[in-house]
Simulated scan of single mutants.
Amino acid sequence: MDQLNMKVLYFGNNLFSNCLTFMVNQGFSVEAVYINDVEENASIVKRICGIHKIMTHSLRPTKEELDEYIKSGVTLFVVADYGYRLPITDIKYAFNIHPSLLPKGRGPTPLTYIVDLPEFAGVSIHKITYMLDGGDILLQEQFEVGQNESISSLMVKSSLLAESLLQTLLNDLETIYESATPQQKRLATYWKQPSIERRIMSWLNDTQQFRQAIRQYGHFGILITIYEELFIVSQLEVADFKHDYKLGSIIFEDQALISVAMNGGFAVVFKSSMVLVNSAVLGKRNNNHTP
C-alpha cells in the first residue's frame, strides 16, 4: 500500500498512542486526530500531534464533518482507545483496535476484567459497524498473562501487540479487509464500565482483597479513607502483618509515606499519589466513554 498517498483520520487517546506514532513514521498522512478523554489520558497523543503539526479535535465528530474529510481524500479511519461511536459514513476503510479477544469483552474498559479472565487477553482489530465492537475481525492475537499481573502491565502488552498487528494489517490492508471474519454473536459478552463503587476500599477489607483491587484498578486509582477524608490513590503497597491496631488508624507517617492498619496487615500509601476526592475529580477519573 502506498502510505504516502493515504489520508487518515485517527481517533484515540493514550493507550494505543504508539500506533499513532507508527503511522506517522511510516508516512501516512494523518489529517487530524480526535480525542475525547480527560487531559491526563490524552496527553501523549496531544504531544505527538504537536511535534508533527497534526490538528486535534476534542468535540465529538458529526457525520457532516467526517463527510467533508472523506471528500478531501481521506480513505481510512483508525479508532484506538476512543470512547465515542462514530457516525456511519461511506469511508473506504474503518477499523477499531480493541484490547480483548472479541467477541469476548466488548465494551469500554475490558482490561479491568482481563485481570480476572486472562484467557481472553489479547488484541482484536475489527471493522467498524453500527454495532459497538461487533464488526468483522481483521486480525486477532492472544497474549499470556502472568501471575499477579496488574492492569498497568496488561496495558503495555496490549499496546505493543496492537502496534505489531497494525503493521501487519497496513502492509496488506485491501486483502485482509476483504477477507475479514464475522464475529460469532452467540459467544459475545459485553463488559460494562466498572462503577466507582467497585474502586472504594474499606480498611475492613483484608490484604488479599486490597491486592486484587490494586491489580484491577490501581492504574486509575482506588478510593480509601484517611483522616476521615476520601482520597483516590494510585500508588500503595500492602503487607501482611499481625497487629492489634484499630483498623483505619495511622501507624506510621513521614514526608513521603503514610501507613494505615487494615484487616490482616497494613497499607503503605505514597503521599504524592493521593488526590482528595470531590465530585469534579470523580467525574473525570471515572472516565467518559460514551456510545
Results as ranks from 00 to 15, higher is better:
Asn171Leu: 15
Ile137Ala: 04
Phe210Asn: 06
Tyr113Ser: 09
Tyr190Trp: 07
Ile226Gly: 13
Val233Glu: 06
Ile250Met: 03
Glu174Thr: 11
Met201Phe: 04
Val156Glu: 12
Lys127Gly: 08
Thr75Pro: 00
Thr62Gln: 11
Ile88Leu: 12
Cys19Tyr: 05
Phe266Ser: 00
Thr112Asn: 08
Asn13Ser: 13
Leu173Pro: 14
Glu65Lys: 08
Phe77Cys: 10
Ala32Asp: 07
Gln184Val: 10
Phe231Tyr: 15
Pro182Cys: 00
Ser29Tyr: 03
Ser58Pro: 01
Ala121Gly: 01
Glu229Tyr: 14
Thr21His: 12
Tyr82Thr: 12
Ser124Asn: 11
Val233Phe: 13
Lys63Tyr: 15
Ser279Ala: 05
Arg285Ser: 10
Asn41Thr: 09
Gln212Met: 13
Gln142Cys: 01
Val78Arg: 04
Ile214Asp: 09
Leu247Trp: 14
Asp67Trp: 07
Glu149Gln: 08
Leu139Asp: 05
Pro182Gly: 08
Leu166His: 08
Asp37Thr: 03
Lys71Gly: 09
Val268Gly: 09
Ser279Gly: 04
Glu197Cys: 00
Lys46Glu: 13
Ser152Ile: 13
Asn36Tyr: 03
Arg198Val: 09
Tyr93Thr: 02
Lys284Asn: 13
Ala32Trp: 08
Phe28Ala: 00
Ser272His: 12
Leu236Ile: 01
Ile224Glu: 00
Gln140Thr: 13
Ser72Ile: 10
Leu165Gln: 10
Leu160Gln: 12
Ile251Leu: 06
Asp67Arg: 05
Leu154Cys: 00
Trp191Ile: 05
Gly218Ser: 10
Gly221Tyr: 02
Met6Leu: 05
Leu59Phe: 14
Val8Ile: 11
Tyr84Cys: 15
Ser179Glu: 15
Val275Gln: 14
Asp2Leu: 12
Phe210Tyr: 13
Glu65Asn: 01
Met131Glu: 15
Thr181Gly: 04
Thr225His: 13
Ser124Ala: 06
Glu40Cys: 01
Thr207Asp: 07
Asn36Glu: 03
Ser195Phe: 04
Lys192Tyr: 12
Ala239Gln: 15
Ile232Leu: 12
Lys246Ile: 15
Ile200Cys: 00
Phe231Ile: 08
Asn205Thr: 10
Lys127Ala: 12
Glu141Ala: 14
Tyr10Gly: 10
Leu282Pro: 05
Ile128Arg: 00
Ile250Cys: 05
Leu4Tyr: 13
Arg199Asn: 02
Ser158Val: 11
Leu204Val: 14
His219Arg: 14
Asp67Asn: 08
Lys192Arg: 08
Arg47Thr: 00
Gly135Ser: 07
Ile35Thr: 11
Asp240Pro: 14
Arg285Tyr: 06
Pro108Asn: 00
Glu39Ile: 02
Ile224His: 07
Pro99Met: 10
Leu282Phe: 12
Glu163Cys: 10
Lys63Thr: 09
